[in-house]
Design a protein around this nucleic acid. Structure first.
Lengths: 228, 228
DNA sequence: CGGCCGACTTGATATGTATCAATGAACCAG
DNA sequence: CTGGTTCATTGATACATATCAAGTCGGCCG
């Protein structure tokens, strides 16, 4: 493992609070994978044998029911620790996971993680807080799906990437439009239409670059609240 | 506080693992409220000054965006500890909460809970596990909303209340149909239609009593998976 | 340079769900 | 028993989103 990666982990919200010796113990039997975009990391229903951390790149949690087409529930990026619940509860994955760009993934054996967590107060505290944040993200998403239209969901997503204190900002979409559409609960076709709908609220898109020229208007349109 | 309640808390998945002295300390400045159905416990945006536990009754987490009509994100019932994330992260509520039947609610001061959690490994572990379970419930709900139709969501919900190993079972809806409709992401009118749609999969409803006469067929219809 | 391929867009149509309005059933108070 | 209130159902219609089918754009490779 690279020195740069170790330093990165020291600042990680989950692993960072651990004393160095415990962190090293976690890393002992860990492995690091370098994966091209589009690789499946695991499938729903499988047992959680490793905890995963994104060292670099981007991963999507994808779900399917039967053989219908997939949906994306969440993206994880550099420094995110994911599938903690399956690991600590020793339950099978509810979702599959797949890289959306070339990625480096750290895999920590599940039983070792559980051992250290049962011993180290700092880790169980950090895990509790991290899961609290994850839970709130999901709550936001459920509210979005139930209360907002497709264009409003897109607008809220764009706002979450922007500096909402300014009037004007430019952002870059971190994923392909098809994937983004699934994350937002719509088809790619409808994502296109949602973008054109947002033009009247000052949203211009050229490829992955998005220009928000009237953020207050966009907030208004989306009924966006800042609740963290 | 009643003796019966104390015994109940000893078995609680979150507070149970605590040593008795620490549990008593948590209860010291706590208060118990007896509330009629329909009472609002708190509103979204407010600060989380208390952790809540349902001693008896039923509570809905409701959300609204702007002044549109509300949606129900989740129900909590006897023994459930709720809004842990807002309490431990010291963030404002993302949702409001409201009793859906007469309820007794225990309120534990947030700062005291945080103190004890930072000190007691048993509590931070229990909290981590509880939040893991909550997270998985939300994941299920997001998958439901994104992948299934309204009648399928209703069917899955009914299956989650039934003994799915049997062919035939009877269940009782724990809430009014209007509330259930909002929890499932549809209107009350559409819930009615969803029920009639499910008749062909062996679902009969008479008031709050539901008879499932062909559970395998219902599972098939809903593309139901048993992932816990 | 030209042609192919994947990703995105655009338009026409179909479907699911919401909305609106009316009716019916259950419950309670008088 | 009666009238009122609330909640659930039913039907007619409107709207949002999905689906299906072309078409466009841009990058990549021969």
């Amino acid at each position: 493992m690279q020195k740069a990666d170790l330093e990165q982990l020291e600042k990680n919200p989950v692993l960072g609070p651990l004393p160095e010796s415990a962190r090293n113990e976690l890393l002992e039997d860990s492995l690091e994978l370098e994966l091209p975009a589009g690789t499946t990391l695991f499938r729903q229903g499988e047992d959680a044998r490793f905890l995963r951390i994104v060292l670099e790149g981007r991963v999507a949690l994808v779900g399917s029911s039967d053989h219908k087409d997939e949906t994306v529930v969440e993206f994880f990026q550099t420094d995110d620790v994911f599938i903690i619940p399956a690991v600590i509860l020793e339950l099978p994955f509810l979702m599959s996971a797949k890289t959306v760009e070339d990625s480096r993934i750290l895999m920590i054996p599940a039983n070792r993680f559980r051992e250290v967590m049962e011993r180290e107060q700092s880790l169980s505290l950090a895990v509790a807080r991290e899961l609290g944040r994850h839970w709130r993200l999901m709550i936001r998403q459920v509210k979005d799906l139930k209360l907002r239209s497709a264009p409003q969901r897109l607008g809220s997503y764009l706002l979450s990437l922007a500096d909402t204190d300014r009037k004007h900002d430019e952002i870059e979409l971190p994923e392909q439009r098809g994937m983004l559409a699934r994350r937002l609960g719509m088809t790619p076709e409808n994502l296109s239409r949602a973008f054109s709908r947002l033009q009247s609220s000052g949203v211009q898109s050229r490829g992955r670059l998005i220009v928000l020229s009237d953020i207050p208007a966009l907030r208004e349109f989306c009924a966006y609240d800042d609740l963290t």
